[in-house]
Design a protein around this nucleic acid. Sequence first.
DNA 1: AATGGTCAAGGGTAAT
DNA 2: ATTACCCTTGACCATT
Lengths: 556, 556
Amino acid sequence: MTARHQLAPNSKCAVCNDDASGFHYGVDSCEGCKGFFRRCITQGINFRCSNEEKCQITPFTRNSCQYCRLKRCFQVGMSREASRLGRRPKKVMKSSSISSRDLHVQLSKHMDTKSTSNGPSSSLSNWDCPQLASATLSDMFGCPPDMMKNLSQMMSGGGLPFPPFSGQPGDNSHSLKGKPEGAANINNPSVIDLSQSALSGSASSRNVTHNDLNKWREKQFEVMSKYMHNKELSSVSDHSMSDSDMAVGRTDEVVSKGSSPTSTDTSPSSFMSGSSDSGVPSPCSITHVSEEQLQRLRMLSEYVQESYEHMYDLVVEVQSGIIDSHMEHCYQLRPRINAASAEIDAKEQAGEDVKPPPGFWPHWLTELMPAIERVVRFLKDTPGFRELPINDQIILIKKGAYDIVMSQLMPMVDPDRLTILDPQLKYRNTKNDCIHLPPPIRMLFEDYFVLSKEFKTSCITDTETGLLNALLGVNSLVPGFENAKAVKKLECLFVQTLHDYVTKNYPNQPKRFESLLRLIPAVDNASQAHINSLHSIKAKAPPSELAFPPLHAEIW
Amino acid sequence: MTARHQLAPNSKCAVCNDDASGFHYGVDSCEGCKGFFRRCITQGINFRCSNEEKCQITPFTRNSCQYCRLKRCFQVGMSREASRLGRRPKKVMKSSSISSRDLHVQLSKHMDTKSTSNGPSSSLSNWDCPQLASATLSDMFGCPPDMMKNLSQMMSGGGLPFPPFSGQPGDNSHSLKGKPEGAANINNPSVIDLSQSALSGSASSRNVTHNDLNKWREKQFEVMSKYMHNKELSSVSDHSMSDSDMAVGRTDEVVSKGSSPTSTDTSPSSFMSGSSDSGVPSPCSITHVSEEQLQRLRMLSEYVQESYEHMYDLVVEVQSGIIDSHMEHCYQLRPRINAASAEIDAKEQAGEDVKPPPGFWPHWLTELMPAIERVVRFLKDTPGFRELPINDQIILIKKGAYDIVMSQLMPMVDPDRLTILDPQLKYRNTKNDCIHLPPPIRMLFEDYFVLSKEFKTSCITDTETGLLNALLGVNSLVPGFENAKAVKKLECLFVQTLHDYVTKNYPNQPKRFESLLRLIPAVDNASQAHINSLHSIKAKAPPSELAFPPLHAEIW
DNA sequence: AATGGTCAAGGGTAAT
DNA sequence: ATTACCCTTGACCATT
Ligand SMILES: [Zn+2]
Ligand SMILES: [Zn+2]
Ligand SMILES: [Zn+2]
Ligand SMILES: [Zn+2]
């Protein structure tokens, strides 16, 4: 700017076109853009553009929009190579590894395609929109505002309202079973309780919260079921789905009706995209990557250091910490699922009745709430998370909890067989069966099916799911952190952790890490769609009946 | 790092474990560590660790703590001499030459032993602790803060408050003698004024400062004497000296009493170590070498170049400059001391009364202040010192002035005969006599005795004392220099100078240089102990009474 | 083969 | 937060 600095007299900053002071981070750039990029990749950032992300970057405008400046930095190819200091090697070490740089280029291409093809669609895909509007949610759900404090209370060390793996709400006439399902037996994936049907009206009175939970579950299930057969809701829906009428007026027996496991289903992928009667534009496809999401992917891949001996021990420790937490708090682990699935198969082959109960779908949705609780526990036991400022933990949970829930529930869904297990692995239903649900609700499940396709394609494992979920839970681009740097560092650590695992365990799958990262925007899109959808559903339902517990009111 | 440089394919950098690029400075090392070490031994450094000096050195952390990186360089045996144009040793390179390399290895061993045996003790032995806390000292001594400017004023060329070799405060009933003791006759070592006892209340009115000095001396001596017989001070002291009570309530006649010159003294080395009721941990022994001190020793020995034709003239010039300055500004030169001592002996043998005056000990301490002045003059006349930035001169003086004072006063003490001369070489007392002093004060003198043992053992000469004192006065590891490189260069020059002198004059004493260097940490330890001790003494004394002159307030 | 120097690029920082 | 300025680093190179 005030430049007398340009040593190469005729070189210009690739970012802002100021006189370049040299070759920095892979491009000719000025001191300002050099420093700006360094700050971005070393500190916590959370940038926002208020101008449709089309700000021109010039020496005089470059400081008016950090978002667009960083975007431009990426576009022109700025990148921190794995190396550190000292002179850059002259001789290029060509094509040695499919490093973060390559991912960058790909992402840049991706972005150029996507962002130009559907620019307006990204307007509401910002990291911070609906789920953080607590006040709005509070109004929406009819909760008094002070209920919003619960999450922070919980985070400050108080007990969670829901115990881990607590009783199932499947039937409203019974709640918990006596058999312990706590964390104690979770570590043994083979311990799966499928043998007992749900029953017995008395909950184990482990604590009051537990009873409260069951009461809430019963009520919630009731409301949910009622809602699902609400004629008005269906008609209000502006969905063009021609079969929306079919869901109208149905009652419980309907559930047991359309349970033909064969796939006479119409094309699934054409359904899921249209998410919303809510009036807010949303991504046309779960695989769409918005500008924000792309930026995060870039940042994540930027963090990855190919060589990180200095933090090897840390990475290993964090890795096992995350995995432990995942194994402890996630119920839907593959071995358990496979065993449960096999058991259902066996029953089926033995001619037993494996018909899902009538409340399958409401049960499924109701189960999301305790799942959120477990996700919170997962995060709290994730290395480093507790060390964040409590308010930052809350922000992250609000942002990421449902993303993680979706990720955890992915194995419930089999996109090929078009079947779906309930989160407690007791029953199996078919996608076809949800055709009877009101369209907004059905969309939710459609989304699960679509998303599960992505997950299945990526062949993600349990361990990788845990590591990825940590990343879903720590997104440094969400605005408002007290200690953005700490969040950034944790995020950085978590990518490194995932990268380390993937490259070590799948050395001959160079694309695997990238494909896992690409699940992040997919989950995010689905999660956003669900949250928006739930908003509009709640808006149309009598608020009093759909009072979520405070914690969930904060997240949804 | 980005290394494809390692010609020896499987060799790793002994410092950071990166791929080595070859055999450098005696070890396999990478280009980075090679360059780093080269910079360290050729340029000014002043490193500090903020992590307990335990930083791991890896390719990715090596740039985060220069201190620990250099420490590791030394630990693995890097040395300028080690492989000077030599080929990588095939098998073992044992016992090649008694060069600085050996000193290194020895020092490394020394450190390993010491640092592991008493790790915590180094926590406060940093170069910069107490003596630099000017503000604290100012409070402690009751000086108004603006008095602290005096040192810098003096350094910027103003006259010193004390004239050289000015009158003695020995007895409080009299002060200066008329006989001139100024710089004029100092250059002639044989001119020693021992004939006249101290007296005559009128100071030579050479200048106002001189009068001020004498007034201050009188007052100071008074206070000091009073303090030394302060009952409360003795009891407050937490020293375990069992005979501390003996000093209580004594008055002047006590001094003449317990003067049996025989050594009924208890073991001296066990006493001097406990420096402090001040709460700061201190070395257990004067010969203890802290981590910082060790690092300095290493650096110093590293600087020494066996061949330095390129700077031979410079070294010779600096050498004679230092020696000149020492001879001019140090009063306690051997010839003078020997003459004085002989005179006292003669008197004694002649049956004259050689009993030290009652104020011998307070006089001794009071004389430290003008000694500091002379040390400042010594440094200012030391080649190169004036060329340093004024603030760096001040830092160095604050750090080293008292070290040099102690070094200069070493010949006062005879650790074998257990006698001690007063700094003006007029009286001789016995160590036993100081048994009557309050323990904290007695400790000071005990330290002098212990330290003098080290000096006597090393057989250091006057010239060597001067050269060593220059090194005591220029410690490049003290933090905060404006021009650290200049300090470093000067330090480097001074070691070379000492080394040159020693190897030339004592070619058959290969260990002599090392043993002289080893005096540095010893002096430093004793100096630190004294400073700490004076702190706590001042803290317990009425501040107004112990107002040191501004300059000394800055140093103490 | 090792040393010492070079200088582009990274990183820190003070002033704004 | 930005950035001009400055120092450090280390890959490479000429020298010994
Ligand atoms: Zn620029
Ligand atoms: Zn913008
Ligand atoms: Zn190295
Ligand atoms: Zn360190």
